[in-house]
Write a protein that binds this DNA or RNA. Structure first.
Length: 428
RNA sequence: GGAGAAGUGGCAGAGUGGUCGAAUGCGGCGGUCUUGAAAACCGUUGUACCGAAAGGUACCGGGGGUUCGAAUCCCUCCUUCUCCGCCA
């Protein structure tokens, strides 16, 4: 959520910058400013009234000591009326504030200046592509099997049983497939830890407040599974519980940045997805992911964003996969993000790119909802910046490891994984 | 799930209806002293909103209520602790 003062200070600039998302927020901004003026006017009246009331209460206290009872009765009458009047103003204030918030949460984050214009993913910019690092005797295009066929051939992922137990999008990993999941999670976590990220295991369900703070509510409410009885949401990403660990906190600038990593299963309803989009591991309702989150002094957030991008890049290079980095354009940028780089690995059998990580700077958008601040070098208390990224989402990594490394009767595992897996290739 | 106790400033901890935004201690910051540091001493030290400023208003777990006046009384929710029950 944007800060009202940011809007107040330069409404035209915000309107202009949000045009990059293909949005015209002029009316929303005007309404917010108008409401804010009402709020201030009302508050001034109320403050004045309350000040009078406080004064009277003090006087009554004084008279009580002096036992001047008839004076007390006189003042009580006035104070009583003030109370009635102020209650009215308090109602008005609540009402206005509610309206402001309702208006404010409709406005997405302001795109960073470098974000390209564009209306959807076709306008995203490919920053760089890396070719597959180890080549062997595979990849005769006509023989390449898609990962779901490989999964069946080697008996490592059972989609059918998963749908019997729960439904489609809930696969069962089996044998070396299960070990591959576990190995990848450990590899990712170790890799993050060695870069200074502290490991956490967060709750996998969050309350409404937490879901709101990171921006899942109200913007993407339908994406989450909801437990009605207890009003909890199954997390769509570890970003939600991890970032919310820091709500209502204030750091000194020298305590920052805070670097966290966490493995968690992720639950997404993915309503409306269909067909080849959801084939195999392409899009699941439950999947595993290792996440990285940083909380930092605003001054350094873009440097840190680059550092995180570098981090994920190296991780993907270690796996030896063909992948690319894409910068999201205004129209494709997430609601809460100011700047996002997506990492996509190449599915050689499907001949398409699959997103495996999204690294974003949210600037103060989440921090404002979280009430997460820091005291900067100038000793001013300001909102922190929050950033996060996947490192990495497992299913599509698994899919491309299987596809990019397939041979006639085996699948070679990336060398870095050998010690995590206890095997170096998958065979029948 | 049942029965009790408690939630106060960065921390510890006082405060049971009137000048309490809140004693005191620790910590932090500034200074005196010192070659330097420590100790000691003096001063200062919450957040948000309005205001040019003076100043005003709100906040003692959240929400509501009683009262002219609430950290203090009442209701409710949440959290923590103790005991009992159940359980991987």
């Amino acid at each position: 959520m944007l800060e009202i003062n940011t809007i107040k200070n330069n409404p035209d600039l915000i309107i202009k910058k949000l045009q990059k998302r293909g949005l015209d927020v002029k009316q929303d901004i005007d309404l917010i400013l108008q409401l804010n003026n009402q709020r201030i006017e009302n508050q001034q009246k109320l403050d004045e009234m309350l000040a009078k009331g406080n004064q009277l209460a003090q006087n009554i206290g004084q008279f009580a000591k002096e036992k001047k009872f008839e004076k007390i009765e006189e003042l009580k009458k006035i104070a009583g009326q003030i109370k009635i009047d102020s209650k009215e103003l308090i109602e008005i204030a609540k009402n206005i504030e509610e309206k402001i918030k309702k208006q404010l949460i409709r406005i997405p984050n302001i795109p960073h200046d470098t974000v390209p214009e564009g209306k959807d993913d076709t306008n995203n910019i490919v920053i760089k592509t890396w070719e597959r690092e180890f080549s062997d005797n595979t990849n005769k295009a006509e023989k390449l099997l898609p990962h779901w066929e490989l999964a069946e051939k080697y008996d490592i992922i059972d989609f059918k049983t998963g749908s019997q137990i729960t439904g489609s999008g809930f696969p069962v990993y089996k044998n070396l497939g299960a070990k591959l999941q576990r190995g990848l999670i450990n590899f990712f976590l170790d890799y993050n830890a060695s870069a200074g990220y502290t490991e956490y295991i967060p709750p996998y369900f969050v309350n409404e407040d937490s879901a709101f703070n990171t921006g899942q509510i109200p913007d993407k409410e339908g994406m989450m599974y909801h437990i009605n009885n207890d009003n909890l949401y199954a997390i769509p990403t570890a970003e939600v519980p991890i970032t919310n660990m820091f709500k209502n906190t204030r750091y000194n600038h020298n305590e920052l940045p805070i670097k966290c990593t966490a493995y968690s299963p992720c639950f997404r309803r993915e309503a409306g997805s269909y067909g080849k989009e959801v084939r195999g591991l392409n899009r699941l309702h439950q999947f595993d992911k290792v996440e990285i989150v940083q909380i930092c002094d605003p001054k350094y957030s873009y440097k840190i964003l680059e550092e995180m991008v570098e981090h994920v890049t190296k991780l993907l290079k270690e796996l030896g996969l063909k992948f690319r980095i894409v910068q999201l354009c205004g129209g494709d940028l997430g609601f809460t993000s100011a700047l996002t780089y997506d990492f996509e690995v190449y599915s050689v059998a499907q001949k398409k790119w699959l997103e495996v990580s999204s690294v974003s700077n949210f600037e103060t958008y989440q921090a404002n909802r979280l009430n997460l601040k820091c005291v900067n070098e100038e000793k001013k208390s300001i909102l922190c910046h929050t950033l996060n990224g996947s490192s990495l989402a497992l299913p599509r990594i698994v899919a491309t490891i299987l596809e990019q490394n397939q041979k006639e009767n085996s699948i070679t595992m990336p060398v870095v994984l050998h010690k995590y897996l206890g095997f170096d290739s998958i065979t029948m």
